[in-house]
Design a protein around this nucleic acid. Sequence first.
DNA 1: ATGTCCCTTGAAAAGGGA
Length: 288
Amino acid sequence: MRIVTWNVNSVKQRMPRLLPWLDERRPDVVCLQETKLADDAFRALLDTELADRGYQVAVNGETQWNGVAILSRVGLEDVVLGIPDGPGFPHQEARAIAATCDGVRIHGVYVPNGRVPDSDHYRYKLDWLAALRRQVETGPAARIVCGDMNIAPTDADVFDPDAYIGQTHVTEPERAALADLQTIGLHDVVRDRWPTERVFSYWDYRAGMFHQDLGMRIDLVLASDPVAARVKAAWIDRKARKGTGPSDHAPVIVDLDTAPDGDIGPVVPPPSAPAARRGTKKLPQAKK
DNA sequence: ATGTCCCTTGAAAAGGGA
């Protein structure tokens, strides 16, 4: 079973990349984030294309922001939208969806960004992660939590730790909240497979960040013991970030039980670029 | 070079978010 998480940054804009990518990689389960479409619009846009490819679809979207979905061609049962009794900002947003696919409980998530440490949005992010943990731990034990965590688990998961000092995604409370989620017994299977490699899943559109490989690894696949034991390959499809009209995130691919065929694509990240020098690069900042 | 892309409103360009 091939499982993917991908923040597509608007599924409508990403159609010319998403559909060929599904045909190329042929995943069994796909968790999408930042679909940015209401459910009826998502279905009108994609139901036929996905049904033609054998996918059932569960969506939790809204008109403008956020939006998550699970596509599966190995079953899609017991769908839950959102986090029951989870926090909102102020209303609960379309950031979580869960379903059981071929015996694995899959939680697809788009964790709140956090914006600025100690802001309301940052506290919401921490509360949201605590609520996610409660939901996950009360569900079936064969489980995956995957998605855009908006947290780089360690300094090795950013191109330059000095560039992120004082920024969201790398602060100790955020990393502690992620670690707390993992104490349920969830393994970061991509990092486990590539313990020392430079592996990123997100590169800012601005300032040629992708071209210079100045990114972060914030899209994670976390798997419980019985699922992690089945992992045969785990990698980030950097090719999907290249070319015309990409998302700013690349898909993360995990194969259970069966190693990929030789013709299905690389199962290793590209050769590591030299590490950036610390303190030499500024992050693009939001306009004021 | 605060350098891009995507959403919305509302009818063109600007504001908000990542």
